[in-house]
Design a protein around this nucleic acid. Structure first.
Length: 110
DNA sequence: AGTTTGACTGGAG
DNA sequence: CCTCCAGCCAAAC
């Protein structure tokens, strides 16, 4: 991965995350795959930590594959709750209800 | 140049 | 659900 690809990757990640609708969440592995770098989930996470990430970027819409919120980022839970995202009793996001389907453009506001 | 470190993942125990 | 582990890849040590 050269420097040009890094920029390309980061930009793709930001675009994808920006496209996640309110009340929906995606995973690090998913956005990395959509960005065209299937095994770069860890780098996707790092990209969201980058200070260069846009301020308005709703990175709280990204959780891990199990629906777990970022351990060292307690606010994420509040941000999601503010969007009526349902949490299971175990503290994980109810992925069956809130997983974002990139193909479903309107993603049923119902 | 070798080792450690994550806002990770999927599987095993 | 929990922890532990191998696989993963760039960055930071």
């Amino acid at each position: 991965m050269n420097s040009a690809e890094k920029l390309e990757f980061r930009q793709a990640i930001y675009d994808i995350v920006a496209a996640i609708p309110q009340g929906k969440v995606s995973t690090y592995g998913e956005i990395a795959r959509l960005a065209g770098f299937p095994r770069y989930h860890r780098l996707a996470a790092k990209a969201l930590q980058e200070p260069s990430a846009p301020d308005a970027l709703p990175c709280h819409h990204v959780v891990n594959s199990q629906g777990r919120t970022a351990p060292l980022w307690p606010e994420q839970r509040q941000l999601l709750r503010a969007e009526n995202v349902a949490f299971r009793p175990n503290g994980m996001v109810d992925m069956t209800r809130h997983r974002w389907d990139p193909n479903d453009l309107l993603n049923e506001p119902m």
